[in-house]
Each structure stands twice: as structure tokens, then as C-alpha cells.
Design a binder for these strands. Structure first.
Lengths: 343, 343
DNA sequence: CTGAAAGCGCTTACAG
DNA sequence: CTGAAAGCGCTTACAG
């Protein structure tokens, strides 16, 4: 890079002190009582020379980087990709840069990322936590590093968070099925210590119970997060074949729904004629598939904005005094073709 | 944040000079002839105290940030989200952090992003260029800022780039249709100054011509990139209705394919019975849709790795001497259910 | 084999 | 109303 212009150059050209120039750059000119004509002179030259302060020097001096770290589960995923996009945009509006990375839900990766980002002096972090991240998060708290969790919380950690009302989403989705006449509703989820999966299951169970419908064991399928694609598809296929009476299927998460569509296709079950289908989380496939799939959608923009605002408020107010606050946003039930009134 | 430990603390605790400690941290101890016992003492304490150098100070002193900027079109998009993910991962392996951002194909946004990232002292940039970015890119070249373009090039700019062989992808896809007996193949694309869209159209035209098939005007539909979703869907619907003979449709890009599926659904044209469909770029929807859609897929990992390697090699070798190099990667034809041999 | 010192570009308490 | 100077944490040319 070419030699950049520095505050010293500006000061020299104007025959002013560095201090004076610095004051006007940082908007402290007024309160320091710099004359208006001086302010204007400086402002003009800054524009003319296209001067921008050196961030590294500023950071070194002030300890403020105006950068936040964003750690998501999977950037290649519709939900996280779009959340990242909105957070980046909103952060930018507020004068912040964003370091971005994916964990692939791997705790070791997550720990390394947190470490690396702290090392890069981020002012704060927005994190989709993985399992086994408690110690790392406690360390952040102990070191007064502002952070907010999103998409899921870790119950043992007292942290700021933004999450979806997963119980409500699952409850509403189940109720929608029941109202449309479905009774033998299967539930497909992943084995997980993640709070949000538990709550979705609770939502499903509560809605069934409130409608006086019993759930037996063969009605719920749990697969492992890291099971390979083929196995999961096969497991879902076997599940629906074995349990004869099912008239509807609830997929607890985005990617399970995608796998589930594939599985039903393979075992030649037609949606919605043979079986209604609903899923948590929206995506392009669900919207455009024939039939389109009924979902409980996460309000991406709202989640992103809440997360960045919460983080910046913590950064500004300082971590110590503020108690942890949690935001819960409501999912949106989007009724589509996959769950019509039962014939 | 708590006060971090500095090189001074390490030096003091060991009763060594800062210089010595710095040499061992930077692996220059050997060549400077520091005794092995000293090296070990320093190493041990660094680990024990969990010391990590302050990046800001280092950057200020050396001008090297070990950070690159990545500017993509749309993080929420399957292709770009996944490319970003791989680039981030590979950069991380090579000791680099990544600033990430989307332009939404808006030149003004792109310019601001470049400016902001330069301001953050990135060592180099990987950019999906928008139209009208020539001046900005020339300025990068003039200022010796390393950068590589990806996904598309701007022909008037002499830059490093990694692009897909778009002509080959479109040619192969068209040939595949022709081989399967389709003759009246429509082409839906966007009006664009982007080189890759031109090449896809050329690929389509060349394949048709090589097969002795004529193309008339009513066979090609061009929509504007920024036309709203509804309008594009309506336009595609009208297009296929008006042009009666069409037996196959080629969508020149990912999102047009998605819109196209929606449009065909609306006008009740059944794929592949009434019309075969192929599209450029793969995604979940194309893979899982019924029928699944034949595509020319971009090798995401290869593109990402080529881009980061090219950038880092430029960063390392210095911009001035190296001539611009371009990498062209081949798309992969994935045959699926939407383009069976014509009955 | 090791150290004292300059300097990267800022901000800010202190002085006038 | 404005300036001289210290110091943030490093790296590195120079000296011994």
C-alpha cells in the first residue's frame, strides 16, 4: 500500500498541533473550544486529502476496535447466512466491522474461534453456542468481554441471549395440524443438549396433550446430529413405514425437514395426500417445493437486529453493572400446501 | 477486558530484554543466536501465562494485519454463503482472519465496503465485483493493494481472478438437452454487463448452432436483476405461454431457476412432462425438488481455495512484479430428473 | 549472545 | 484557544 496520510501531515500542512487536529476529528473540538474557523480548515483538508484515521493506532491507544465477532453454526445454511448478512449490515450502520466464522457445531472449533477473535481485540461477540462451551463463556464473563448468545442458550450460563420462542412455534404448528384434522402426528427431532430442541419437543407434546391426544413411543424419532445424510434419510423412511397410522409428520428443524422430504419421496409417500408435513424454520425449498411446506419461520431480521442492539448496549454500558437480559422473539406460522384440512 | 499480559511482563519476569523475548516469539531466536535455554524459558512462560501478542501493536509497527477482506454478492445465497464458509476456513488455516460483507450487487455498497476494509488495514481483498467498479479496482491496483476477483471478472480491468468456465457449463447443459431430444430450448437470463452472463448465453448459442438448431428472438427472455420477485415470475410465465413450441427451458442462474420453478408451477406446466428444465448453479432446492433439477454446478471448494491461494501468493510476492493471473475452473454437469430423454 | 532505544499513528491529561 | 509530550505494545536497526 502507498504511504497513507497521517494526522501529523494534516497538522503540519495547517500549521496546527496534532492535538487540535485530533480534537476536531473526534468531534471534541466544540467542547474544547476550538475556533470555528480552525475546525473548518481542518475539516476541509481532511476531505481534500481523503484522510482516514489509522484504526490500529486508535485501537492500540484506546483499546476499542469497533469490531465485533460473529460466530454462527454454519454460514452455508439459509438461516445463518441471512442472519449474518443482516447483522453485518446493521453493525456497519452503527460503525462496526464484523469478523465472521462458522463452528459447524463443533465445540473445539468454537473455542478456537473465540480465542482468535479475542486476540483480534473484538469489542464483543455474538455467538451461536455449541455444547460444551460453558467454561469458555464463563471465561468471557470473568474477563468482562461483552457477548450475546443467539439461536440457543446454555442454561447453566448466565448470559445475554436472543432466542426464538421455540415452545410457541412447535405448539402452534402442532395445533395447526390438529385443527386441520390430523391426529396421529409423528415428531422427528435430533438428540441434542440444545435447549431449543427440548422446547420444540415440549411444544409438540403440550399441544398434543391439550388436545387430548396421546403420544406413544413409536411416534417420535430421534436421530443424531452427526449421523450422515443417507442414514438419516433411511431412518426416517423406516420410521414412517413401521408406524402405520401416522397422518402427519413434524420435523423439528430445517435440515431434518429437507431430509424428510427426500425420505418420503423415496418411500413413495405423497405429501399431503398420504401424510401432512410441517417443519420448523423456513427456507427456499419449503417455499417452492410442490407441495409447499407449512413452517414456523424464524423472523431473521428481528433476531439479527435484537442481537446486535443488545450487544452494542452491553458494550456501551460496560459489562459489570448490567444484568443479563434475554430477548425472546416469536416465530411466524406460515401455512402452505403441505398441511391442508384433512379429507 | 482484563489487562492483558504484554511482552514487557514476560521480559521482566524472566529478567530478559524485550528484544530477546520478541525474537523468540517471532521465531527469529535461532538466527539471532539466542541460547537454547533462554528460548525454552521464554517459551514456557508464554504458555504458562497464556501470552498472545497484541495484534494492533503489531499491525501498527509492521503494517501487516493478517486479515483479508471478502466481499461477496449475497451472504444469504447458497453459493456465496458456502464459498464464504470455505474461504474463511482456509484463511484461518493459513493464519488469516476474514472481514466479510455483501454488496447485494450494488456498486455504491461495494465501493463503501472496499473503502472500509482498506481502512481496517486488510492485507488483501477477495471481491465479487459489481458493475461500475472499474475505477475503484484501478485505484486498488495503483495503491498496490492485493486483490482477486471471483465469480466474475471485469474485462476492462487487468486483475487476478478466479472464475467458472461459464461458456463450457452452458454449452454442456445445452448439449445435454439436445442429446436427450429437446430442440426448442428457451433461455432465461438477466440483463447484465457481467461477463459470466454473456458467456453463458454464448455457450447456449454455440451449442444450439453446433447442433444446427436455430434460435429466434421469442426464445430468449431477459429480465432485469433488480426486477421484483413477482414481476420476474409473471414474466417467465408469460414467456412460456406465448412461445408455444418450447420443450425445454434453460435458466442462466440459480435464482432465476428458483423463480422459474415457481413460474412453471403457477402456469401449471409440469416438469419434465410438459417441459424439461436445467439451470446454472446448484442448490438444495434443485437437488430435492420433485423432479430434481439438472444443473451445471460450481465447484465451491475449488473456487474458494483457488481464490484464497491466489490472494495469499500475491500478498506474499508483492503486487508490483507479479502479472495478473486468472484461474478458470470447470463446472460439473449433474444430470437429474428434470431433463430425461424426451419421449 | 543480549539490550537500549526509536518509532508506527493515535488520544488525552496537563500546562499555558 | 492551542501545544508539547507521554504512552498504548510491538519490531528492528544498531550497538556492544
Amino acid at each position: 500500500m502507498t504511504k497513507k496520510i497521517s494526522i501529523k501531515d494534516i497538522a503540519k500542512e495547517l500549521e496546527l498541533s496534532i492535538t487540535t487536529v485530533s480534537f476536531v476529528i473526534n468531534g471534541k473540538a466544540e467542547e474544547m473550544g476550538i475556533s470555528e474557523s480552525t475546525i473548518n480548515k481542518v475539516m476541509d483538508l481532511i476531505v481534500k486529502r481523503d484522510y482516514t484515521p489509522n484504526n490500529a493506532a486508535r485501537l492500540l491507544r484506546t483499546g476499542k476496535s469497533n469490531t465485533i465477532g460473529l460466530i454462527v453454526e454454519d454460514l452455508g445454511n439459509y438461516f445463518f447466512g441471512n442472519v449474518a448478512k443482516v447483522i453485518e449490515l446493521e453493525a456497519s450502520k452503527r460503525g462496526y466491522n464484523v469478523f465472521l466464522s462458522s463452528t459447524d457445531n463443533n465445540a473445539k472449533t468454537a473455542k478456537e474461534l473465540i480465542r482468535k477473535m479475542r486476540n483480534s481485540s473484538v469489542d464483543g461477540l455474538i455467538i451461536t453456542p455449541t455444547r460444551g462451551l460453558k467454561d469458555e463463556l464463563d471465561k468471557l464473563t470473568a474477563d468482562h468481554v461483552p457477548y450475546v448468545l443467539f439461536d440457543r442458550q446454555i442454561h447453566e450460563v448466565d448470559a445475554n441471549y436472543v432466542v426464538l420462542d421455540n415452545h410457541k412455534g412447535a405448539y402452534d404448528l402442532t395445533k395447526h395440524l390438529i385443527k386441520n384434522g390430523y391426529e396421529d402426528i409423528g415428531f422427528v427431532t435430533i438428540i441434542s443438549e440444545m435447549s431449543q430442541m427440548d422446547e420444540r419437543e415440549r411444544g409438540y407434546r403440550d399441544a398434543m396433550q391439550d388436545a387430548g391426544l396421546l403420544i406413544d413411543k413409536s411416534q417420535v424419532l430421534k436421530v443424531r446430529f452427526d449421523d450422515p445424510y443417507d442414514e438419516v434419510v433411511a431412518a426416517i423412511g423406516k420410521f414412517v413405514k413401521r408406524r402405520k397410522g401416522l397422518d402427519a409428520l413434524f420435523f423439528a428443524t430445517n435440515y431434518l425437514g429437507v431430509y424428510g422430504i427426500e425420505a418420503l419421496k423415496k418411500v413413495k409417500i405423497k405429501i399431503p395426500y398420504d401424510m401432512a408435513v410441517v417443519s420448523f424454520d423456513d427456507n427456499d425449498l419449503f417455499r417452492l417445493f410442490t407441495p409447499s411446506i407449512t413452517v414456523a419461520a424464524q423472523p431473521i431480521r428481528e433476531i439479527a437486529v435484537e442481537a446486535i442492539d443488545l450487544l452494542l448496549s452491553v458494550i456501551k454500558s460496560g459489562v459489570k453493572e448490567s444484568h443479563s437480559t434475554g430477548k425472546v422473539v416469536s416465530p411466524e406460522l406460515i401455512q402452505r400446501e403441505s398441511s391442508p384440512p384433512k379429507l
